[in-house]
């Protein structure tokens, strides 16, 4: 039996939790204000005036579009590679016990457990040693490496829930291995792969540390932003790009939340 008093949070805890959340969100909200400021040369607060002029200016900037296109391309290819490799790995690890199984799960996690700069510099020096010129594909190679783990994690969790008797039943009913994969395994795996793929895409889309080492002269959107941060050329354009990036990353997260919300409630996560 619980008394009401114990179910209510102490005031101090409430304030500390609220302060923590505000600390996480106020800086991002600030980005939205700055995207509409009339001030061009400094980061003056409060903004002297508001305008939507910079939205149009940014829209007409070819370099922003080019780097956006490259980012989307790299993220899409890396996500595809990560989905294939991550699923294969997850299938092997969850279906069989074999020598080196633990080592494989460690190997998959390693690219994100080690600081990004190590992955970056290791790949760069390997490209140099092997005389591989920098291109879109060298960027993809780096991104896919650390994207595998998010797909792998999602797929392993789903394989664990997928009962083997389901697969055996399919085989007993006369389906061959490929049909079983097509009609039984894949539909069961689909939402996990979708979620993993979305996270992988977001991870790749936002990556900057590894990319600086594997990109050569091409600029993905994060590289473009980094250059603007180090050597600002047109601050209002950077402000607008920052706001758009925030909006673009918020939508998939919200979508993923509303897609998985019902399942969580059925699963008894509620208190």
């Amino acid at each position: 039996m619980r008394s009401d008093r114990q179910n209510r949070a102490p005031m101090g805890l409430k304030i500390a939790a609220a302060a923590g959340l505000l600390f996480l969100h106020l800086p991002i909200l600030l980005i939205f204000v700055y995207a509409f400021t009339t001030e061009e040369k400094s980061y003056q607060w409060p903004p002297p005036g508001y305008t939507i002029k910079w939205l149009g200016v940014t829209w007409n900037r070819p370099d922003v579009w080019e780097s956006l296109a490259l980012s989307v391309k790299v993220a899409a290819i890396s996500t595809l590679i990560a989905i294939v490799l991550g699923t294969l790995c997850a299938a092997a690890v969850s279906r069989w016990r074999f020598f080196g199984r633990e080592a494989i799960s460690l190997l998959v996690i390693l690219p994100i457990a080690l600081p990004g700069i190590i992955t970056g510099i290791a790949l760069r020096s390997a490209f140099n040693l092997a005389d591989i010129p920098f291109s879109t594909w060298t960027i993809v190679l780096g991104h896919a490496t650390f994207c595998i783990v998010v797909v792998y994690n999602n797929a392993v969790a789903r394989f664990r829930r997928l009962s083997t008797s389901l697969i055996e039943a399919s085989m007993d009913l006369g389906a061959d291995g490929f049909q079983t994969f097509r009609y039984i395994v894949l539909p069961n795996l689909a939402t996990a792969l979708l979620a993993g793929g979305m996270l992988a895409f977001a991870l790749s889309f936002d990556e900057v540390i590894v990319t600086t080492f594997t990109a050569g002269h091409q600029a993905t959107l994060p590289i473009w932003m980094l250059e603007e941060l180090v050597r600002p050329r047109q601050r209002p354009v950077t402000n607008v790009v920052a706001m758009v990036v925030v909006l673009v990353t918020f939508l998939p997260i919200l979508a993923a939340y509303y897609l998985t919300r019902d399942g969580d409630q059925i699963g008894g996560h509620g208190k």
Partner: peptide
Amino acid sequence: WSSYLVKVYA
């Protein structure tokens, strides 16, 4: 999940 660089920029 919001962009690392945008957070630094903020």
